[in-house]
Design a protein around this nucleic acid. Sequence first.
DNA 1: TATAAACCTGACTAAAATAGTCAAGTATCA
DNA 2: TGATACTTGACTATTTTAGTCAGGTTTATA
Lengths: 141, 141
Amino acid sequence: MKLTSKGRYAVMALVDLARFDNINPVSLRDISLRQGISLDYLEQIFSKLRKKEIVQSVRGTQGGYILNKKAKEIKLTNIFDAVDEKVKTVQCKKESKKGCNGKSTKCLTHNLWDELETHINNFFKEKSLEDLVKDNIERRV
Amino acid sequence: MKLTSKGRYAVMALVDLARFDNINPVSLRDISLRQGISLDYLEQIFSKLRKKEIVQSVRGTQGGYILNKKAKEIKLTNIFDAVDEKVKTVQCKKESKKGCNGKSTKCLTHNLWDELETHINNFFKEKSLEDLVKDNIERRV
DNA sequence: TATAAACCTGACTAAAATAGTCAAGTATCA
DNA sequence: TGATACTTGACTATTTTAGTCAGGTTTATA
């Protein structure tokens, strides 16, 4: 089980953004430099974040991105959802006709993975961008 | 983030095994047929489980595998550990010299992934093979 | 003791996912 | 009117996954 870079980068970039937000738009170039993430890759990520209305873009010189909601209202689950970072444990759900092993019944561990998904998603639903920013400020001191 | 088949199969196979254990060794061929997992792949998985002393092999005709501990004492974390299914969130830990982005400091979200790992691992530490077997019997009724 | 069942090992590979890069724009401010 | 920054989509090298394949060795039992 592994978290992909896309999800990690999305969160890192948004924390970076949230720290400078409410003053001026933050350019992807700046985020790229500060966080060491490729600019092209950031653009892909922010395109998705914009479509899900997590950020808003400001074009032109001195443009960039700003948060579209308050940091407190942006939960990790929203971010991961936007960039298609999902917790997948079993395939069996998709194929409603078949069970997990191509058999008619659920596999022996079906419930387990269900529980696990819930467990992880709960974590993501609780954490907000604000929590992360605060955590960071505290550590700096 | 995705759970790999290896981890899922390992748990499925062990639940299967645990249900028939304490009577006779269970052959991989039987598990393969019941769970729909390739025999060759099962052999790879059980080789690892045996090395970590989670199962014991019985050779010869009528041979197979038996649990090496009580089902209650085998936690999911032990199983995942044996088959190299790990929860990876950040790379930064490995490189002790550098920070997460090749910079000298921790990345903005370092603590977050740490917490997440702990959160998931707690789930795995609590669940035992016995829990899963019981859960299965209950569902059958 | 022959033989078949079962374990054991390591090399190999097709397919999918990942982590980007590259190219060619468009919009807007100064 | 340039420079800056966003926008989009196609492309690709690398890595990981999920197995397969081949060729063993061990051991119970007939």
